[in-house]
Computed example of a mutant assay.
Amino acid sequence: MLVKMKKQGFNLTASDLSDKCFKPLIHLYKMGISNETDTTQFKEQFYMQLSQGQKALFVFYTYYNHANNSLIEFYWWSAYYYAQPKSWLALKASAKYFEDKSLLVLFEKIEQVFLQNNYPNTLENFTVIREDLDKNKEIQASIIALHTMFDQITPLTVRKINDRIEKNIQEFVELID
C-alpha cells in the first residue's frame, strides 16, 4: 500500500522526511479504523498491507509520537506496547530494520525492567496506569534512566530513518509527476 505523493515539492533530503512519509499512513489508518467494529482485525490487515519499510516506519512513529511527550507517556506507552507481543516485536523489528542498535538495546532494557517487575505481557491483564510510576521509586528510577536514553537516542534514530528513506524511497512512497 504505497502512498502516492507528488515529486514536485517533495524534498528527499528534508529533516522531516520520515514524518512526511508517516503522516499519510496514519491518516489512512485513522480513517479506516473509525469505520470498523473489529479494530483488532483492521489493525492487522492494515499493517499487513504495508511494505517492510512502511511497517518499520509506522510502528516506530506510532510509539514515538506518544512516548516522546513526557516521562509518564514514555512509561505508559512502553508498557502498553509491551503488553501487546506482536506490537512489541514489531517495535524491536523496526529498530533492526533501520539498523539502530542503540534503539534496540533501549527496547531490550525496557523489556528487562518490565520482565523483572512482572508487568503484563497481554492486554487482558493490562492494568497499568500512568500514576503507577509515582508509586514505585525503584521502577521510577529505571524509567527515568531509560527515558534519558530515549531522549538521547531518538534524534539519531529519526536521522537514520530519514537517511534510509532518502536512499530507498520506493519502500515508503510512490512519487508521481
Rank of each mutant, 00 (worst) to 15 (best):
K6I: 12
K6S: 14
K6E: 14
Q8S: 11
F10E: 09
L12G: 15
L12N: 14
L12R: 14
T13K: 10
T13M: 05
T13L: 06
S15M: 08
S15N: 11
S15A: 13
S18H: 04
D19T: 12
K20P: 00
K20R: 08
C21E: 02
K23D: 15
K23S: 15
K23P: 05
P24G: 13
L25K: 03
L25P: 02
I26R: 04
H27W: 02
L28H: 12
Y29T: 10
Y29S: 04
Y29L: 07
K30L: 05
G32F: 03
G32P: 04
S34K: 11
S34M: 09
N35Y: 03
N35D: 05
N35L: 10
E36D: 08
T39I: 06
T39R: 08
Q41I: 11
Q41C: 05
F42H: 12
F42L: 13
K43Q: 14
E44K: 11
E44A: 12
M48N: 15
S51Q: 05
Q52F: 08
Q54Y: 01
A56G: 13
F60K: 03
T62N: 13
Y63I: 05
A67M: 02
A67E: 01
N68S: 15
N68Q: 15
N68Y: 15
N69K: 14
N69P: 01
N69W: 08
N69S: 13
S70N: 06
S70F: 03
L71G: 07
L71W: 00
L71V: 06
I72H: 13
E73W: 02
Y75D: 03
Y75P: 02
W76V: 03
